[in-house]
């Protein structure tokens, strides 16, 4: 949970933020991680090209405002307001959007730098292979099936593992996030390799 001091955020500002998020280190840490996850999701869903960077910028500004003594009744609401401002600034950057929305069509989007099925399969194998056996089995089971059968299967899994459906969903979400990040890195590396080879 330590912040990158290179971003210019002082320790005092970061401490102010944590103290507003929770009464003790554990709860503040949990709230901080949640807020950051929410921010990254917000920026991703709103189409920012660099959601993590935007989330950190928002947290920095939030911390600075709190350290300045700004009275904030609802930190989450205040963070949302800052995030919207950061998003507007992000849109003004020329590199903010990967593809102009007006130019989007299903076929052009999928064909331009879409990885071939072989590359996707290689990356998937590699990324699933990096998971613990238990996580691998769980993710394949959790996302199998569809509709009512899938819902029932997930209930059964939670029952058998002795956890709530919500706890199971959280756990699988983290595993899926990890697989997504891994596949993203893997595909990017393959594209780089192709570029260097001039393919």
């Amino acid at each position: 949970m330590s912040r990158d001091p290179g971003r210019g955020l002082t320790a005092g500002a970061f401490t102010s933020l944590l103290s507003r998020l929770g009464p003790d280190a554990e709860r503040a840490g949990f709230a901080y991680e949640h807020l950051r996850r929410a921010l990254v999701s917000f920026f991703a869903w709103r189409g920012a090209a660099t959601p993590e960077e935007c989330a950190d910028e928002t947290l920095d500004r939030l911390a600075v405002r709190l350290a300045e003594g700004v009275v904030v009744e609802d930190v989450a609401r205040f963070a949302h307001g800052i995030a919207r401002m950061v998003l507007r600034e992000h849109w003004r950057r020329p590199d903010a959007r990967g593809v102009p929305v007006a130019a989007l069509t299903s076929t052009t989007l999928i064909s331009e730098d879409d990885p071939d099925e072989g590359a996707l399969a290689d990356c998937l194998d590699r990324c699933l292979g990096e998971l613990a056996a238990e996580s691998r089995a769980l993710i394949l089971e959790y996302y199998a099936g569809e509709g009512r059968a899938r819902i029932e299967a997930r209930k059964r899994m939670a029952r058998e593992l002795g956890v709530s459906e919500s706890a199971l969903r959280s756990r699988l979400q983290r595993v899926r996030d990890e697989v997504e990040r891994c596949i993203g890195r893997c595909l990017a590396a393959q594209i780089d390799e192709k570029t260097h080879r001039g393919v």
Binding site: A48, I110, I139, I183, G184
Partner: peptide, 19 residues
């Protein structure tokens, strides 16, 4: 498909579907 981070999720879902 317009956003690189979201596109990554689409790829991962396709990969998972394959698996």
């Amino acid at each position: 498909l317009a956003s690189p981070p979201l596109r990554q999720r689409v790829m991962a879902a396709r990969a998972l579907r394959r698996a």
